[in-house]
Structure formats: C-alpha cells, structure tokens
Nucleic acid binder design. Structure first.
Lengths: 164, 164, 164, 164
DNA sequence: TATGAATGAGAGTTCATTCAT
DNA sequence: CATGAATGAACTCTCATTCAT
C-alpha cells in the first residue's frame, strides 16, 4: 500500500488522506470505505508490520542451539531488505509518536536470549540480553536512518565478540 | 519551553500551535511574534537541544586517555537526567520526522573514538566505533522509550566488555 | 457569481472568503476546492469579465465603416446594462488594485480607431484615438460610480462633436 | 507620509498597519497614538488630498473669463506632478473602494463650467459640462494608471476642440 | 512621547469525513 | 464498488488594537 510508504517517510500526522489517495491513484472516499478511519488505515498497516515481525521472531524462538539464537538475533538487522525497508521504518518511526510502543512484543526474544546466555554460562544473562536488544535497536536505527554500506562488517565485528 | 515537551512526546505535526499556546498559557499570536513560523519555533528548539548536546560531546572530545574516551561515550546515556530528558527525547524523536537528520553532528565523536580504538590496537577501529555508536543509539532509545530500572547494570556489563 | 459582486463593490482585499461563502450560501471549503486559492477565484472571475469584454470589442473591431467604428466605441458605455453592470464595475475597480492592469487589452480598439481617424483625414489620428479612449474611461467611470440619469444625452452631445 | 504611498499603490485593505510602521521606521503603536484608528489615518490622508483639491479648484472657480475656466479645467490633469502623483492616485483609487465617493465635491466646478458654456452660447451647457468632467476623469485615470508620455499633446488636441 | 510586548478576532487554507449518485 | 461534491472543524498565520513602561 502507498500509505505505508508515505507514513514511513513523512510520519502519520504529516501525511493527509488526500495525499495518500492522490499518490495511490484512487479516490479519497475509497480509503474510508476500506478502512473506516485514517487511524483504521494505520492500524491495518501496523498489522502487516506485526505479521512480518512475528515471522522473523518465530525463526529465532524455534532455534535450539543457544549460539544460533544469539547469532540469528544479531543478524536480524541484515534482514531488512529493500522490500521490507518501509515496513520497518514505519515501525521504528511510530515508536516515537502516538506513544504506541508495546514492550511486550519483544518478550519472547528476551526469554529465549536469556536462556541462551544462561546455557552459555554468561555471568549476568539478563544484562547481556538487554545489551543485545539495545544493540539491535541501534543497528536497526542506523540502517533505517543512514543506510551505511558496511552493515555486514559491523555485525560481523559484533558476532566475533560473542565467539560466533 | 512547553513546545519542546509537546514536540518531543507527540511529534511536530501532531501538535498544533494553539495547543502549544494553550498549554504555555500565552496567546497563539505571541508564538508567531517570537518565532515567525511553526517551523521557526521548531528550529529554535532544535538549537537549544544542539547546544546541550555539544556541551556533553565536548567533554568526551577533550579527553586524552583513549580508555576514558570510550568509557565516557558509553556512559553518555546515563547522563539523561530527569531535567534533560525532554531535550534528548526531542532530539531522538526528530530523527524520524521531518527527515532532518544530520549525521555530521556525530562526526567529532566518531573521530575521537576511532583514534582511541586505534591507540588501543583494536583490529578494526572503524567497525568498533560504529558498534559503540550503534549501542549508544540503542541504549538511548531504551532509556527514553521504556526507562528500564537497571540502566547502570547494563552499561556496566558493556564497560566490562571493553575492559573499563 | 456572488464573489464578482462583492469584489466589484468592496474590493478584493476587503472581502474575505468567509464572507463570500456565507453570501453564496456554500461552505468556505468549497471555494477552495473549486478555485484552489482566493487569487484563483479572482483569476477565474477576471476570465469571465475578459470574455464578455472581448465580445463587445469584437463587434467594434469587425466594423468596416470608420464612422461606425467611432460611434460604436463612444456608445460602449451605454451598453452597461443592469445585467453586465457588475462585470464592468469589477473590471474598472480592479485596475486600481493588485496593479493588475494590462494596457494590451485595449490595443485592438486603439488600432482600429486610429485607422478610422486616418481614413477620415483627422489631423492627429493617434491623439484623437487617445482622446476617445480617455473619454470612454471617464464615461464608464461616471456611469459605474454615480449612475447619472442623462447618460444618453451626454453621449449624444459627444457624437455630435464627431459628426455622427 | 509613508502611508499615503502604500495606500495609493496597494490599496487601503491590502496594506497593514505593521507594514506602514515598518516602512515609516516608527513603531506601530505610534500610528495609533497619532490617528486613533487605521481609518483615522486614512481620514487624515484624505484630508490632505481634499486640501490640495480645493487649492486647484479655487484657481478655476476664481477665473472670470469663460474660456479660461474651461482651459484651466482641461489642463488640470497636467498638474499632476511627480510630487502630487500619490495623493491623486489614492484619491482615484479610493473612489472604487469603501464606496466613499462624494459627488458634491465637484459641484463648484460644475457650476462654473456650466456658466462658462452658457456664456459661450453652447447648445447644451449641462451636457457639455458633464462631457468635460468625464474627460477629466478619463485623462486623470490614464495619467495615473499608465503614465503616457504624450499627455500634453492629447490635452492640446482637446483644447483645440474648444477653440482654446 | 514613543515603544515592545501582548492579544482576540479573523483571515486563508487544509483536514478527515460523509453522502448522494 | 467507487467517486465527486460537499462540509465542519481545525490549523497556521495576520491584523488592528491595547497597555505597561
């Protein structure tokens, strides 16, 4: 959907329904027929984003080898392909507006990461998990905001820190 | 300023000048007398935020001991006191709106960090710098968005990773 | 259009879009949907006025007999019927505002008048043309501004001066 | 006064008090101290214009020779010097706005002109007077709006028509 | 006397939303 | 099912005016 792109790059409140309609080549009325509200449209987009998120997280949670769990987690930012770029950008941008941030969504990964660090006998698994999650956020931010050309090198440097 | 708080928590486009005026207890016209534009108001707020940032960064850049440089950098997020919370939150939130993100602002820290890692004979100082900066972003995000109670523990865990 | 009347009698800047909307019995928003701008509304009205003017001028320009050209020109002010009063008033009023006066519009009449006076062997056809045009302006002003009851007598007195 | 110039060229409603103050190099408040109102300022300017008008008209009304009366009247537009240009432009422009047109002001000239034409045994002195007045308006309009370079020639052509 | 700071009312314009077709 | 026409409410911004100093 075109709305995703516009919301992602300009922000929910900065994009009017008429802009969306014009860019999508449909009538403004159609948007309201489909989504009831401008908020409804956003909700529908959020849904898509969450679905993608769940898919990626499932793959991590299902892993049995602790090292693989950590590696897969740290490599998450590399999965932001051109195609999915906008979904992610929106997801991250929205965290700072409409204070619609829900920390519960990361809970499964937190659990499985702490478990992994415990198995690997890290001194403070909880702190270590927090650390990884923070890095994840930072890496995603970097990639979404200034798209560096050496993503892979940086992630690799980190993987080395965890003997992966 | 009241506008700072509102822009920081709700976003530039979501906050109307009349809301700001009402909350600040002044007339809407006064805002335009002082700042010309809504954009002017934002610019003026950005200015304040930048000034504060420069102050913090100066302390790091002036340090001579490489280890101190790294330590001070990693401890930056802990400096987000209640008082400065809003400035930080705005700075971070704005990165995602009005695509007014200027990566040049971090350049001085980047330079001094790479220098530090080079002096400490790290294998890939550039990547290591990127890593620290990403973590910084992640930590700041975590603190600003979900204010964890174990900030200090997490940072300490990281400091240990750099033998600090 | 209601706007024409208001602009004509009070002036472009003195009439607010809300006044126009109220008087026309439509929502203010509709005006902006139709004309983009307040200026757009004015432009659109100007267009109508110009079209009507062209019609009147065409009749003069098409005449072949030099005497008829002059007579028809001098009689133009008598054509300001109740119906067309507003268009004329706007046209004249606008000349003094928004300095949007374009002298090129009278060029065709100027040409055809000078030609007529040349054919009739007047000493200084150019000056004579200017004279007629000036009188035209004066007559129109008089009629539009203080609607005298003896329009016809005055014009007739003038026609006599040109042996018509 | 600066206000005169601005009102004359842009129109009363198009010029804000702040513009006037800025251009005049004084505070906006001073204008209201001196003139009470924006309308008061306009009234005060109108006063000046009327005074000038009276001066010129007095010269005509005082003339005893009928031919001189007519000649002086027709030559009025030539008296619009650069210095007085703005006063006149405003006077004429205002006729079309704020419908503040007062036909009584021309009454003295009308009287004296009709008298002159009667003395000169014109067939319809009233119509002839009206004619001269209309031409006057037209000539003034031409001079004020598109400042032609052959003003004098045109007036001279007209004077010839009245054997002057 | 002159000004800077302040403002309520209103200007032009955009927005999300509705509804008849 | 899709749209064009319509609108009330809200938004950014300007205006004429006041008042303490």
């Amino acid at each position: 959907m075109t709305a995703l792109e516009l919301f992602a790059t300009q922000g929910y409140h900065a994009v009017s329904t008429s802009k969306i309609a014009k860019q999508a080549g449909v009538s403004e009325a159609l948007i309201f027929r489909h989504f009831e509200n401008k908020e409804g449209l956003l909700a529908s987009i959020k849904c898509i984003a969450e679905e993608r998120m769940k898919g990626i997280m499932a793959d991590i949670v299902m892993s049995t080898d602790p090292k693989e769990v950590i590696r897969k987690t740290l490599q998450m930012p590399l999965q932001i392909t051109e195609k999915e770029y906008k979904v992610w950008r929106l997801t991250y941008a929205l965290k700072w507006q409409t204070n619609s941030y829900d920390p519960k969504k990361m809970e499964p990964i937190k659990l499985v990461l702490t478990d992994a660090f415990t198995k690997l006998k890290y001194e403070d698994p909880a702190a270590e998990t927090e650390l990884v999650l923070m890095f994840l956020d930072g890496a995603a931010t970097a990639i979404l905001l200034h798209e560096p050309d050496n993503k892979k090198d940086i992630i690799d440097a980190l993987l080395k820190k965890y003997d992966l």
